[in-house]
């Protein structure tokens, strides 16, 4: 287990998020070291999205601390969190549907025009398919392209930490595979990734570590490369009874 050293990476302590009377997160602790790919797995409603939304500043935590690179982030507005080098790609990507692909990338706040152009060129290099449709409104793209665009848009900001919420949702297996294959590549270039997913098996393929969230609490934390990691996470999902492999999909 590679715990983040103080002052580097992301550190979440005792995070509580409530919506009215519903407690979506009940005291979550999570660590991420720079350069790591960390998965958060759990069933629908386990609190994965709430965790990412709280880190990104979309929802204000009721209690707990979020610290990134030694700076407290909890309570900051989303644009401030973004300025600290964290970028969230929400569920289904949410590209700006009436803007063209190119405008989607240009909307990202980047220091300087030349820098923006350079980063856009990089993004098109990673996703050549987007370059071909760059003058089309995002609403005309396919689901896979929209997810690619969302990812490209996030990468234009060159975050040190990419927050991905259910990137596989609604996409075909082949596209998901392509998408996930990109993540270790990003990590190698120094972009850490925190990814929330229901697809336990896929997460373990590329993540360094994974947390299982159950009812808003961390039920288990596993090293993705260790033997039996999947079984251990499954056990956390369903309780200690012997699990049937594959049912988590």
């Amino acid at each position: 287990m590679t715990a983040a050293t103080a002052g580097a990476g992301l550190s979440v302590r005792g995070l509580v998020v409530t919506y009215g009377t519903v407690r979506a997160l009940r005291g979550v602790d999570l660590e991420l070291a720079e350069g790591e790919v960390v998965g958060v797995v759990g069933a629908n409603g386990a609190g994965k999205s709430s965790l990412l939304a709280a880190v990104a500043g979309l929802v204000r935590p009721a209690a707990g601390e979020i610290e990134a690179r030694g700076r407290r982030l909890d309570g900051l507005d989303p644009e401030r969190v973004f300025a600290h080098g964290l970028c969230l790609v929400p569920e289904r990507g949410r590209p700006f549907s009436r803007l063209t692909v190119e405008e989607n990338l240009r909307a990202v706040v980047v220091p300087g025009r030349a820098e923006l152009r350079r980063r856009m060129a990089q993004a098109y290099e990673i996703f050549p398919a987007l370059h071909a449709v760059r003058r089309q409104p995002a609403e005309t793209l396919s689901g896979g392209q929209r997810q690619q665009l969302a990812l490209a848009r996030a990468l234009v900001s060159q975050p040190w930490l990419l927050l991905l919420d259910e990137p596989s949702l609604g996409l075909s297996p082949r596209i998901v595979e392509e998408l996930f294959a990109l993540l270790p590549e990003l990590a190698a270039r120094g972009t850490s990734v925190l990814v929330a997913e229901q697809r336990l098996h896929d997460v373990l393929q590329f993540a360094d570590r994974a947390y299982a969230l159950v009812h808003g609490e961390v039920a288990r934390e596993v090293d993705a490369r260790a033997d039996g990691a999947e079984a251990e996470l499954l056990a956390a999902y369903f309780g200690p009874a012997p699990a049937v492999p594959g049912t988590a999909r």
């Binding site: 507005d77 973004f82 949410r94 700006f96 996030a154």
Partner: peptide, 27 residues
């Protein structure tokens, strides 16, 4: 609205306000 960064960000905010903030657009 089409030619300047500010205009594009404004249209982005008009499209999806929360998402615009997530890519750094100041609300």
């Amino acid at each position: 609205l089409r030619g300047t960064s500010f205009g594009i960000r404004m249209r982005a905010a008009s499209d999806d306000f929360a998402m615009a903030r997530l890519v750094g657009v100041r609300a």
